[in-house]
Amino acid sequence: MKIDGSLTLNGTLERAWQVMLDPGSLSRCIPGCEQLEVVGDHKYRATLKVGVAAVKGTYEAMVELTEIEKPRHYKLVVEGSGGPGFVKSSVSIDLEDRGPRTEVVYSVDAQVGGIVAAVGQRMLSGVAKLLFNEFFKGVNRELESAPPA
């Protein structure tokens, strides 16, 4: 499954970069994130509770940030599994300076397997888009709630 999109964040490039690499912010922004534990350099163990239609469940996931090119690009790699199935996804994120705002261009390549894919196939890409919107909404919330000093 491939999803591409772009949107604008309400903060400067520098602030957006900060928020999107900060474990505390990430744990608040990632939809359904119940726990985010640092296990290495830009490497986290996460517990995610996500549902697609009737298939809800908890995933244990490894989250890693790679290809970090401060402050414009990184790749978010998530590999998780749980009762409803498994997810392998990599999200390429590019940030563009737009003065007081920042433009984000993202490109997702995700493989979803297990029950969630067997019963929710028609809804998967819709749900994935929804989850991304949730994530960036969260980033905006972070940017707005903690204005630059």
Partner: peptide, 9 residues
């Protein structure tokens, strides 16, 4: 990956 797990599919 199996794609027809319910009567919706």
């Amino acid at each position: 990956q199996y794609l027809a797990g319910t009567f919706a599919d």
